[in-house]
Amino acid sequence: MSKQFQFKLVLLGESAVGKSSLVLRFVKDQFDDYRESTIGAAFLTQTVTLEDQTTVKFEIWDTAGQERYKSLAPMYYRNANCAVVVYDITQSTSLEKAKSWIRELQRQADPNIVIALCGNKLDLSARRQVSQEEAKKYAEEEGLMWGETSAKTGEGVSDIFTSIAKKLPLTAPPSARGGTRPGVPGGRTGVDLNKQANAGQGQGDQCNC
């Protein structure tokens, strides 16, 4: 019998780095060259099935990168189980912005939050401004997952979400996750909470990409 878990995932990052594009690729396997910048936030869900048939349902909160909606972020990452902080590999300033988001998460979010740093627009590596080494080093120092993606080609997109799913503590009882907030295993399938599938690897691991 398969087990289903539900997790709240928040995407953060500077405007235009491709957060919404990543979600669109992940959820609908589509890409759109002209996307309207996100207003406030968009909410989507997508389920990934792990090798052991465990399913993980992500409640994805795709936030707006524009400054004018910046104050909204705390209400979205509050109680998030995981965060994907996105930067654009062709814009070094976007990594700086990503770093500041990570600092904010480390200060304000749930201490157990799983954070992945994601360099997007891999298809534009010719115009790369952020080297893999630089980003990877920073991620290791901070104990983050790290990977590069292209929402346009789809490269690395599902990997990053799958890695997060594996990394999440699939054993956590509801009470450990801040009241009634997400992260609670789906009750409908009658999961035995004490008999869990293998949890992900240790902290600092990078995804397969």
Partner: peptide
């Protein structure tokens, strides 16, 4: 082509 949420509310 509509946006994802009303600007005014957000």
């Amino acid at each position: 082509k509509s946006v994802n949420a009303p600007r005014e509310i957000m």
